[in-house]
Amino acid sequence: MSEATLLSARGLTLRFGAIPALVGVDVDLWPGEMLAVVGESGSGKTTLLNVLSGRLAPDAGAVWYRDPAGRLHDVHTMPAPALRTLHRSDWGFVQQDPKQNLRMNVSAGGNVGERLMAQGARHYGNIRAQALDWLTQVEIDADRIDDLPRTFSGGMLQRLQIARTLVTHPRLVFMDEPTGGLDVSVQARLLDLIRSLVTRIAAVLVTHDIAVARLLAHRIAVMQRGRVVETGLTDQVLDDPQHPYTQLLVSSVLNA
């Protein structure tokens, strides 16, 4: 593992029965950089995200995370409490369906404050103030703080999920199609938000939308049938694709 990487994976392999979901995948992620993982459905990109974040165990290969003290941890052999703590503090996970990651019967403020309380925050006033601050940052009206998420639109739910995830200032965020299923204008707003909030945070962003990758990511990895076929600087891979599949992918994108 290179000296400065935040997250590294080598030789990740995983089969679902006869289907090869991941075949010998290597990944490196440096602090503060966003890596987009693109590919069509079934390419293995969501599986890769789940393996990198410790939610799914690979058949072979390993994932290492470097903590703020510089120590390396094997994500899949670290003790369950440690991984859980990591997910609640240093790491964040933004799901495609925000309802998976929100408590629908808890107010917006409670949702944002939960990670703070899980970390030991015990001052109601401070928790509420931080929740208000984050709701404002994700452009949710401050007076919705006590409203239940079931009264929110899809875009608002996604922004609430982002607030809930970023409130503990994670160093590494995993994002699974964060703009999937949203209207185009809503997507634009969300992308703008991600662009401005996820600076100096390392992130792995899974998306099938190349335009999203181009807008947000420093580096891009292209997956096809469980393999990373090409990886590199985003604009270089998209403007000067080397691999046949990457060329196909790029040429298939409609330009508005």
Binding site: G232, L233, D235, Q236, D239, D240, Q242
Partner: peptide, 9 residues
Amino acid sequence: MRSLFGNYR
């Protein structure tokens, strides 16, 4: 030009 910028490899 694009090669000079690193946009082309």
